[in-house]
Simulated scan of single mutants.
Amino acid sequence: MQRLPDTSLTVALASGGREFFGWGQDRHLAADLFDAINSNTKATGQWNRGKAPKIPAFPRPQTKPKVKAAKRPTTVAEIYKHFQRR
């Protein structure tokens, strides 16, 4: 998978799913810049009531946590049973 554009579907599926389609380095950087500008505005603004408004973060695709099932090792007896059923 060399030389594929970072916005391709193949790279998106390797990154975690279809929701990453179109999310290249430029889009991640723009989302980070958006959040940085909002947090700077929130920190340095002079608000009437002294409390800054809640500014939502830029929506990003969420990675799904990988669930690792506790799998016990297969024994030779189980393999033997499996092939005997055929």
Score class of each variant (00 low, 15 high):
N40P: 01
P73D: 14
Q2T: 02
R18A: 13
I55E: 14
K81N: 14
R86W: 03
Q25P: 03
S15G: 12
F58P: 01
W23H: 01
A57W: 06
I79K: 07
P5K: 10
Q25K: 15
R86E: 09
A31W: 00
T41E: 12
S15F: 04
F83V: 08
M1P: 02
P65H: 03
P59G: 11
I37P: 02
E19Q: 10
R85K: 11
N40F: 08
F21V: 07
F21W: 14
L13R: 07
Q2M: 06
A69N: 05
T63Q: 15
H82C: 11
I37K: 15
G22Y: 01
T63S: 15
R27Y: 02
R60I: 00
G22P: 03
D26P: 00
V67Q: 13
D26V: 05
K66S: 05
A31D: 00
F21L: 14
E78S: 07
Q84I: 06
R86V: 12
N38W: 08
T41P: 04
I37A: 15
S39F: 06
T41M: 14
A36S: 10
P65E: 09
A69V: 07
W23K: 01
P59L: 10
V11K: 02
H82D: 11
V11M: 02
I37R: 15
W23N: 01
T41V: 13
K81D: 14
P5R: 08
L29A: 04
K54S: 11
S8D: 04
Q62D: 08
N48C: 06
N38V: 09
R49I: 05
A69S: 09
K64R: 11
G50W: 08
F58T: 00
A70I: 01
Q46L: 07
D32M: 00
T75F: 05
A52Q: 04
G50E: 13
S39M: 13
N40I: 03
R60G: 00
Q25V: 07
K42E: 08
K71V: 04
D26E: 13
R18I: 12
L4K: 11
L9E: 10
A77S: 13
Q84W: 10
D6Q: 04
F20G: 00
W47P: 09
N40R: 05
A52D: 05
K42H: 10
V11W: 00
L9F: 06
R27P: 00
A14Q: 10
T63K: 15
T10R: 10
A70Y: 01
F21H: 14
W47N: 15
L13V: 05
G24M: 07
Y80S: 12
A30G: 10
N38E: 12
Q2E: 09
A77I: 08
K66F: 08
N48T: 06
T63R: 14
I79V: 09
A77M: 08
L4A: 11
K71H: 02
I55A: 14
K54G: 12
F58L: 01
S8P: 01
T41G: 05
R86T: 13
R3I: 03
S8W: 03
R3A: 05
V76P: 14
A36M: 07
L13W: 01
K81T: 10
T44V: 10
K54A: 12
M1D: 05
S15R: 04
F21P: 03
A31R: 01
P5M: 05
A52H: 08
A77K: 13
A31E: 00
H28L: 03
R86A: 13
A43Q: 15
P56R: 06
G24C: 04
K66T: 09
G45D: 05
A57P: 15
R60K: 10
